[in-house]
């Protein structure tokens, strides 16, 4: 009952979670393979954190089943945590403790801490374990949070927005830490808003919106989520039909001599066509993550 029965780190079948009449997650099916880095993407309120909290049995599924290495997430909630490292989104720590005291406390609660690894991580992340957590910056607290998740080198890491507050250099070190885990055959389930991050470290990504799984995508080396929205100003009013003929261009709107359009994927044909019209200005509109993956999967 309490020992690992399969190699599959996470298997979610028909999982739903309701809060009263509100459906937070609706019949989610998802599988994370051994040694896989799995990205979990979606806008705020999509159901990412609800799913993660249900995996850890903070929340009980309203329907369906979540298995961790073959163990039921509810019935074997204590046993599964021997194999899980968890970093909460917007993590809360004990301000009066130092990092070292926190890790000692969590070790007392049953984590099999590898202290050499803790020291190595603190060195690489450039964080003092002696300072009181309450005195640390947000980024440094995030580092403490990362170390407590990694410190027992768990078979499954569940990370909710892990690079929040980290500078680019520290993000790079985090990516290395994730890859090290992967090379050890451990799995990582990472929730993120950052598509670049997902493309950089994940083998596979699932997109969730309004509690429903939109798609699960293998992240190939040449795969790139690219969706840009451009605003182009021409000297005179352009012929909108010419741009409508380009496969990668959609959602064209015209305002006198200004065109706004969405370009998905390769932009070379769009640029070629654009150059023929001698545009006088070109700017890119910010595109949300939600826009990007909804456009990819709207058909």
């Amino acid at each position: 009952m309490n020992s690992i029965t399969t190699d599959i780190p996470v298997e979610i079948t028909g999982f739903s979670k309701n809060y009263g009449t509100k459906i937070a997650v609706d019949r989610l099916d998802l599988k994370v393979e051994k040694g896989e880095v799995f990205g979990f993407l979606g806008p705020n309120g999509a159901g990412k954190s609800t799913t993660i909290r249900s995996i850890l049995n903070f929340l009980t599924p309203s329907d369906g089943k979540i298995s961790i290495f073959g163990l039921d997430s509810v019935k074997s909630s204590v046993a599964i945590k021997n194999h899980i490292g968890y970093l909460a989104g917007d993590i809360s720590l004990y301000d009066s403790m130092s990092g070292y005291q926190l890790f000692k406390y969590l070790t007392g609660l049953g984590k099999s801490t590898n202290w050499d690894y803790v020291n190595d991580l603190s060195h690489r992340l450039q964080i003092s374990l002696q300072a009181k957590i309450g005195t640390l910056s947000k980024g440094n607290k995030q580092k403490i949070g990362l170390i407590q998740a990694f410190m027992h080198q768990p078979k499954l890491l569940i990370l909710d927005e892990p690079t929040s507050g980290l500078d680019p250099l520290m993000k790079q070190i985090f990516y290395e830490m994730v890859l090290e885990m992967k090379h050890l055959g451990n799995s990582v389930f990472v929730s993120s808003h950052d598509l670049n991050e997902v493309q950089h470290i994940c083998d596979k990504a699932a997109f969730i919106k309004s509690g429903r799984l939109i798609a699960t995508e293998s992240i190939r080396e040449d795969f790139e989520f690219s969706l840009r929205r451009y605003i182009v100003t021409f000297p005179t009013s352009p012929d909108i039909g010419e741009f409508e003929k380009i496969d990668s261009v959609s959602e064209i709107t015209q305002n006198e001599n200004k065109l706004t359009m969405t370009v998905k994927g390769d932009i070379s044909e769009f640029v070629r066509k654009l150059s023929k019209h001698d545009p006088i200005d070109l700017s890119e509109e910010e595109t949300s993550l939600e826009d990007i993956f909804m456009k990819y999967y709207e058909d």
Partner: peptide, 14 residues
């Protein structure tokens, strides 16, 4: 309230 309960409950204790 502070969220530290998640640190505790993510550990292998009932």
């Amino acid at each position: 309230e502070s969220g530290t309960i998640e640190l505790i409950l993510a550990s292998p204790i009932s």
